[in-house]
Amino acid sequence: MDLLLDINGLSVFFGGVQALNKLSLQIRKGEIIGLIGPNGAGKTTAFNAITGRIHPSEGSVFFCGKEITGWPAPRIARNGIARTFQNIKLYEDLSVIENVMIAAHSSISYSFIEAILGVGRYSRDEARIKSRAYELLELMNLGELASEQANSLPYGSQRKLEIARALALNPRLLLLDEPVAGMNPTETREFGQFLLTLRDNLSIGVGLIDHDMSFVMEVCDMIRVIDHGIPIAWGTPSVVRNDPKVISAYLGTDFNGAMDNHATN
């Protein structure tokens, strides 16, 4: 079955404020789905509700046919939804390689007693986790920085490290919250290419939030637009781009500017 994520009528209230209103969204294997909207539209809230960081007030989330609404975050992660964060959340004081290895914690089969005694599956698992982590770092071009401290990396590399860490979970669905924020146009274009290959090679689904319209338009198969928590449009990049509701939602923001950049790029 190709349907990975199936969200129906997902709503989130904070106190009296409705941060997300009846969002529905499907992500299939091999698809990159964009979730866009002006600032404060509820995009990150949607990610938080999907990944169990916050409890949705209404609606349901199905993942691979299983209902996961309201599950605790770690359990959802272990079931195959990995994410990155808008304001990069690395384990700052740890090394780059440790950051990636940590995401493989749920895949270890040894108990803490085996770890202390150094017997059983301990050595085998550790070796596996480590070589897998190096592989992922190579994939993200971070191989040489493996023993650096995570917060000593430049901003762009930190974003990449976050993705490497998310991939170490072996996810079926990857949710990226503003992955190209702070990257320059060249880096962004490279990252777009990378994302497309990643999707094809790993055959995973990707959910994507970003403000860089040219990037979103280029990589996404379908786009869901929300404004003030309310879904206002759905379609392919070309449909969404010309939707009057979308244009008016972005009115006075940098939507047109972003589109112009897209043209000149």
Partner: peptide
Amino acid sequence: SSYGRAMKAVREDETAAEAMG
């Protein structure tokens, strides 16, 4: 071990640790 790394991850950022399973 991986348990120690997980402890450090929780120390550094509990939210990110939980998002990593």
